[in-house]
């Protein structure tokens, strides 16, 4: 398949090129802040991409997706606090716990639809947030400082900021590639069908629940990975990353970039954090400017920024 030389593909290509060159720029200018900002962007783009899998392709608008950022992060933080620093233990455990919690939340919430699904995922998200607040041994609502990053026995030095950035970027690209394979597979077609018309799916013989639940678990696990990365990036984890407003931010990133588009969440995350950075430099009340911009995107560009770039296109 030859990718067409459309405006949208050019923008995506330039964006990827820019992401590749960020550490070079940081080195040349001697500006570590840019590298740190973009590491954050790349990590949150992984989270947004995972949310897009359930929300954009599966029609499951989860308002508790940030919970997995916290779960992944806390697994790293707690294990480090207890003296287990090996990434080979921390990371698989973090992903496993994320998957298990996603399984339980999905099992209970996927029986509902629409607003009820949004509310129940919000409730679960807040529940997990308060679990974080109540972890007195691990800093409660003050959070937990992580003194040592995950240790990969010399294979990978996460304390090197450039190495860490490229590693995150690699995982982001892997996530996008995985999403691409998933949504075009039989599994993906079943998920999309369930979003489009679940009643018809049952009528033609699909037990859709099991596919939607699986999709929900995959998304939760990937977001848990983003949480693992985020905790390693900030050397800190606190319940704040799981607050419902963080889940809202993830939704905004996906909608802003383009729901049900492969690179939409990445575009949305870059736009969101870049705007936050620029606008908050202008005024403390940056949301006053950001809000209307978001409104305009939602009202006039149904497919988000990606939809704007691609022109009128069909899902």
């Amino acid at each position: 398949m030859m990718p067409a030389l459309s405006l949208r593909n050019i923008v995506v290509a330039l964006l990827l090129l820019m992401l590749l060159l960020v550490p070079v720029y940081a080195l040349v200018v001697g500006n570590n802040f840019v590298l740190s900002l973009f590491t954050r962007i790349v990590i949150l783009a992984i989270a947004a991409t995972s949310l897009n899998l359930i929300m954009g392709y599966g029609g499951m608008v989860s308002f508790g997706h940030a919970a997995y950022l916290g779960i992944g992060g806390y697994m790293v933080g707690i294990l480090a606090y207890e003296g287990i620093l090996s990434g080979f233990v921390q990371w698989p455990l973090a992903l496993l716990v994320s998957a298990l919690i996603a399984f339980v939340i999905g099992l209970l919430s996927l029986r509902t639809r629409g607003v009820y699904f949004i509310m129940i995922t919000l409730a679960f998200g807040q529940m997990i947030y308060y679990v974080g607040v109540s972890l007195n041994r691990y800093g409660a609502d003050d959070g937990l400082t992580i003194y040592r990053r995950s240790n990969f026995a010399g294979l990978l030095n996460l304390s090197n900021k450039t190495v860490f950035y490229y590693f995150c970027l690699l995982l982001l690209l892997a996530t996008i590639y995985l999403t691409w394979r998933l949504v075009n597979s039989r599994f993906g077609m079943a998920i999309r069908g369930a979003r489009s018309n679940d009643r018809r799916m049952h009528a033609i013989g699909f037990p859709t629940f099991r596919y939607r639940l699986t999709c929900f678990v995959i998304a939760g696990t990937i977001c848990g990975l983003a949480g693992v990365l985020l905790a390693n990036h900030t050397d800190f984890i606190s319940p704040a990353v799981m607050h419902w407003t963080r889940s809202g931010d993830l939704i905004v990133m996906v909608v802003l970039g383009g729901m049900g588009s492969l690179f939409g969440p990445l575009i949305g995350t870059v736009a969101f954090l870049a705007l936050e950075e620029v606008l908050s430099g202008i005024t403390e009340y940056w949301q006053i400017i950001f809000g209307p911009m978001l409104l305009a995107i939602v009202l006039f560009a149904r497919g988000g920024i990606d939809g704007l770039l691609a022109g009128i296109r069909r899902g």
């Binding site: 993906g188 077609m189 069908g193």
Partner: peptide
């Protein structure tokens, strides 16, 4: 064709196939 192919897919075994493009 996607619509009708989904109906075929429903009767062609389970859909826990994550990798090969269905189209």
């Amino acid at each position: 064709l996607d619509n009708v192919a989904l109906a075929v897919q429903a009767h062609a075994g389970h859909s826990f196939r994550f990798w090969t493009p269905a189209r």
